[in-house]
């Protein structure tokens, strides 16, 4: 009898134990999840209230007025619709400047990012001991917002596109350097070894052994950066670095009566961002497909 009862109860006891400990775990997880959610909701709500308090106008007053300004701009632009093509032509050079700032800073930033990334990648670095140094340098370059460098340089160099180019290029070098170095870490070292055996120096090893492997990847990162930099260059224009953003600030300062100019600038900015967005995403898709086949 005793044997039977042992055989009979042991498995059920085991199952019970597993079940209860499982349920306990589930309950614990639910509790933790609930607490995390509660803390998160509390943070969001209190954060919103603080931001609302410190804002000039409150959220609930302003939410109804969000459409007013676009409506004013659109209605005025609609009335003067015949002027719009002329205004678009007038501001086209500013758009070109904004795009030029983005393109030049992407190119310069990519070159420096490339050099930094190779110097900061394990297995490829020219001076392996200095890898942490180059990494920290990239971190700092990435962390400084463009506007900081741009404003300081505007003080020294005067307004215009050059401070914006330098500011965006520094940030780009840091941001691309990190992505480039992650891609370079996955590159095969065999071509590098082969080149080294023929007596190639470091720069030849990199240029002929590593770059061809990672070029499609780098190109696609660079294009994505170019897209981001167009936006950045428009914003920097707003603080005095020239281009479309600068024109936008002036047009805004004039206020009603000149809303058609603001509308023309909005259209140009929106159009060019969407255009380059589509262009680069198509090109990037082709790059990644080319790699897959």
């Amino acid at each position: 009898m005793t044997d039977f009862s042992l055989l009979d109860t042991a498995p059920t006891q085991g199952v019970d134990r597993i079940q209860s400990s499982y349920l306990q775990q589930v309950r614990k997880r639910r509790l933790y999840g609930g607490i995390t959610l509660l803390v998160f909701v509390l943070l969001m709500v209190s954060g919103f209230n603080i931001a609302d308090d410190r804002n000039a106008g409150s959220f609930w007053d302003g939410i109804g007025k969000v459409g007013d300004y676009p409506a004013d701009v659109l209605s005025e632009a609609w009335e003067k619709l015949s002027d719009l093509p002329g205004l678009i032509v007038k501001y086209f050079p500013a758009l070109i400047e904004t795009i030029n700032i983005a393109a030049v800073s992407t190119l310069i930033g990519a070159v420096f990012g490339l050099i930094f990334s190779l110097l900061a990648t394990r297995g490829l670095a020219r001076w392996p001991r200095l890898i942490p140094l180059f990494r920290r340098m990239m971190d700092i370059m990435r962390a400084v917002p463009e506007i900081v460098i741009a404003l300081v340089l505007i003080f020294v160099l005067g307004g215009g596109p050059v401070p914006a180019v330098i500011a965006i290029a520094i940030h780009t070098a840091g941001a691309l350097g990190k992505l480039f170095s992650e891609a370079a870490e996955n590159a095969s070292l065999k071509p590098v070894e082969g080149l080294a055996s023929t007596g190639a120096n470091w720069s030849q090893q990199m240029w002929l052994g590593v770059i061809p492997q990672v070029a499609p990847n780098y190109l696609s990162y660079g294009l994505l950066r170019f897209e981001i930099n167009i936006r950045a260059s428009a914003i920097l224009g707003f603080v005095g670095a020239g281009g479309l953003g600068y024109e936008l600030r002036n047009a805004m300062a004039w206020g009603p009566g000149r809303f058609d100019e603001a509308a023309a600038i909005f259209i140009l900015l929106f159009g060019s961002i969407v255009f380059f967005d589509q262009l680069s995403s198509r090109f990037r898709n082709r790059l990644s497909e080319g790699r897959a086949t």
Partner: peptide
Amino acid sequence: DFVRGVDALIWTVVLARAFGPGPLTGA
């Protein structure tokens, strides 16, 4: 696509008209 294309700069300008300057507008 539209919301992304309008870009933070223009949104800032438009929203600042409705909510006034401050952290809420930026958020």
